[in-house]
C-alpha cells in the first residue's frame, strides 16, 4: 500500500466535493442542537457509530470486491432520506471524477460508466482506494474520518467555532475512529461471505430527519 495515497484521499483539499457538505451539521446548528465544541463532539460521536460505521463498512466491502451494484443498493436501503441519497450519489460522482484523474484505471472507468450520475460515495471510495493501491482498512479509516471531519469543518464556519477546539474534538475522537474502522473491516469481510445483508445498518433518526428539513430550506450554506 501507499501511505501517501491514503493521505491524499483523506485530505480535505482533494477535489472531491466534500467542502460543500456539512454532514448534517448545518441542520443541527440551526435547530440549536449544536452550539459549541461539546455538542460538536457528541454529534460527531453519533455520526461515527451510525453513518460513519455504515459508510466505512460499504467502503471496506468494496475494496474486498463485493459487487458495486449490490453495495450501492445496500447503501440505498440504509439511507432512507432522499436528500441524503442524492447527496451521497453527487459526492460519489465527484470523487469518481477526481480519482479517475489521480489513479486512472479500467475499473474506475467501468464504474463511472455503470453509474453516470454517481454511485454512493462510500462505495466509490472503496473502489477508488483499491485503484490507488490501498486496502480495506485504509478505505474504512478514510470513510470514518470523513464522517466526522466534514461536520467539524462545517461547524467552524457555521458557528465561527475556534478551529483549535474543532481539531481538539477530532483528536479526542481518534481512538474511536480507529475502533469503528476496525469494526467496519470486519463487517466488510463478513459481507464477502454472507452478502450485503450482513453489513451494519446503524441509523441516526435526527440525521435523516434533519437532512429532509435542510433540503427544504431556501437559504443554506451547505448542500447537505
Amino acid at each position: 500500500m501507499s501511505r501517501a495515497a491514503l493521505l491524499m484521499l483523506a485530505d480535505g483539499r482533494f477535489p472531491a466535493g466534500g467542502h460543500a457538505h456539512s454532514g448534517g451539521a448545518e441542520a443541527a446548528v440551526k435547530a440549536g442542537r449544536i452550539t459549541g465544541a461539546a455538542d460538536l463532539e457528541e454529534f460527531c460521536r453519533g455520526r461515527l457509530h451510525t453513518a460513519g460505521l455504515v459508510a466505512a463498512s460499504l467502503a471496506a466491502a468494496a475494496v474486498l470486491r463485493v459487487p458495486v451494484r449490490e453495495l450501492d443498493a445496500a447503501a440505498d436501503a440504509r439511507t432512507p432520506s432522499p436528500a441524503l441519497r442524492v447527496a451521497a450519489r453527487k459526492l460519489g460522482r465527484q470523487l469518481m471524477r477526481a480519482a479517475r484523474a489521480a489513479w486512472p484505471s479500467q475499473e474506475l472507468d467501468a464504474v463511472a460508466r455503470e453509474f453516470p450520475k454517481g454511485a454512493h460515495q462510500p462505495v466509490v471510495l472503496g473502489v477508488v482506494a483499491r485503484a490507488a493501491g490501498l486496502g480495506a482498512s485504509d478505505a474504512a479509516h478514510c470513510a470514518v474520518y470523513e464522517s466526522v471531519s466534514g461536520a467539524a469543518g462545517a461547524v467552524v464556519r457555521l458557528l465561527s467555532l475556534d478551529p483549535f477546539d474543532a481539531s481538539g474534538v477530532l483528536a479526542r475522537l481518534a481512538p474511536e475512529v480507529d475502533r469503528v474502522a476496525d469494526l467496519a473491516v470486519e463487517a466488510g469481510r463478513g459481507a464477502v461471505v454472507e452478502g450485503v445483508g450482513a453489513l451494519p445498518a446503524a441509523s441516526a433518526p435526527l440525521l435523516e430527519i434533519g437532512a429532509e428539513v435542510h433540503a427544504g430550506w431556501g437559504v443554506r450554506l451547505f448542500a447537505s
Binding site: 466535493g17 460522482r93 465527484q94 451547505f222
Partner: peptide
Amino acid sequence: AVETGACPHTAIRDDISANLE
C-alpha cells in the same frame, strides 16, 4: 445553482467538481 459550503472561491477554483457536474 451550486451550493458552495460558505466558500465560493473553493467551488470555482480549488474543488470544481460540483460545478463541472
